[in-house]
């Protein structure tokens, strides 16, 4: 299953190779593609050459760790890449570097802690990875400074309709694009699987500059905070209620006319759809919509709980609905143009 393969692949910002290779294989027979200087995978499916030329974008990278030094005793110090809550790190298994070495992030046992210590959150600076090495030299046989690490986490189906995996943000978006590319349209469907979104939306800036689309659809995994201990007004999105359309985040404000159009299409086709109900965060849309003279941009996201952790949850129905919605939207643009 492609979603399993994508979410289990290794792809911290700056080291997206595994994900890129899977995607290349998937779209080889569907579209023309190339890579650029940053590692973005750009594609184009000419269709019947009609406009508007649509850019689809999803990022390949995920948050992770980087090994910054190896201590005398063979323990690895690390730093986070992208936004990780330091408090989730302790007591996790990770996979490091090209040799896929397993390691654990341990911490002083509870028995040895002072009561006060238990109340203090552990910072990544104070943590380290243990790969079982005897000493520095032994560790260096397996791991190099600068190697990336990701959470060791397997894709699983849980509950009735959910999947559990790391990197749902944004392998879900990558998966959705491959599904869209299987369909035939009259419009030019271009786009990019982007790199380095998690450290500042960097790949998409270069990709949009190269592609010069008439409009863009950014496909994301967004946080769903529909959990206990949170009030309804803070949910942002709800699992199982369909893909979410963004009105505003820290990097982008949607054009209300485009949002309304998405909602209309969803309603007409009977596809469940929700609005994203917070204004935090950012996506590749932030850099795409201000590229060159400006690009009309829509963000459609699949709600994910526990994003940026080893165990995120998302709904398969939401994913299918996102595919259907984007498909319907492209057909709508094909029939009625950009309408601006």
């Amino acid at each position: 299953m492609l979603l399993k393969e994508l979410t289990e692949a290794f792809g911290v910002s700056g080291a997206e190779d595994e994900v890129r290779n899977i995607l290349k294989r998937e779209i080889e027979s569907l579209a023309q593609f190339r890579t650029d200087a940053l590692g973005n995978l750009l594609f184009e499916k000419p269709g019947k050459g009609k406009r508007p030329k649509i850019m689809l974008a999803a990022h390949m990278d995920e948050v992770g760790l980087m090994i910054t030094s190896i201590g005398k005793n063979g323990w690895l110090k690390f730093d986070t890449v992208g936004g990780i809550d330091d408090r989730i790190l302790v007591s996790k298994t990770v996979v490091i570097g090209p040799q896929k070495v397993k390691g654990v992030i341990g911490a002083k046992a509870i028995h040895l802690q002072e009561p006060k210590e238990r109340e203090t959150a552990l910072k990544s600076k104070n943590l380290y990875i243990d790969i079982g090495a005897k000493d520095k030299e032994d560790a260096e046989k397996k791991v190099k400074v600068g190697d990336y690490a990701v959470f060791d986490s397997q894709f699983e189906r849980i509950g009735s309709d959910l999947i559990k995996a790391k990197a749902l943000d944004d392998r879900i978006g990558c998966y959705i694009i491959t599904e869209i590319l299987k369909k035939d349209y009259d419009l030019v469907i271009s786009g990019a699987f982007t790199v380095q979104e998690e450290i500042g939306r960097r790949g998409s800036a270069a990709a949009a500059y190269a592609i010069e689309p008439d409009m863009a659809i950014v496909i994301e995994g967004t946080f769903a905070a529909d959990v206990p201990e949170n009030k309804e007004e803070g949910y942002s999105t709800t699992l199982g209620k369909g893909p979410a359309v963004t009105l505003m985040d820290k990097t982008y404000i949607a054009d209300r006319r485009l949002v309304d159009r998405v909602l209309q299409v969803a309603e007409r086709k009977g596809i469940p759809c929700q609005l994203r109900r917070t204004a935090f965060g950012g996506t590749d849309a932030g850099s795409i919509h201000t590229t060159k003279e400006g690009i009309p941009t829509i963000v459609i996201s699949v709600p994910c709980r526990y994003i940026h952790s080893p165990a995120g949850l998302a709904s398969l129905t939401d994913i299918q609905n996102a595919i259907d919605l984007i498909d319907a939207l492209i057909i709508d643009f094909q029939e009625r143009g950009l309408g601006r």
Binding site: S13, D36, A37, L38, N40, L65, M66, I67, T68, S69, D79, T80, V81, G82, V145, G146, I199, G200, R202, G203, A205, A206, Y209, A210
Partner: peptide, 19 residues
Amino acid sequence: PEPSATGTDAWAMQITRQG
């Protein structure tokens, strides 16, 4: 090892034009 922003001219250069 630089896990993210390097805070140097390289950070700007990399995403210039098409990269």
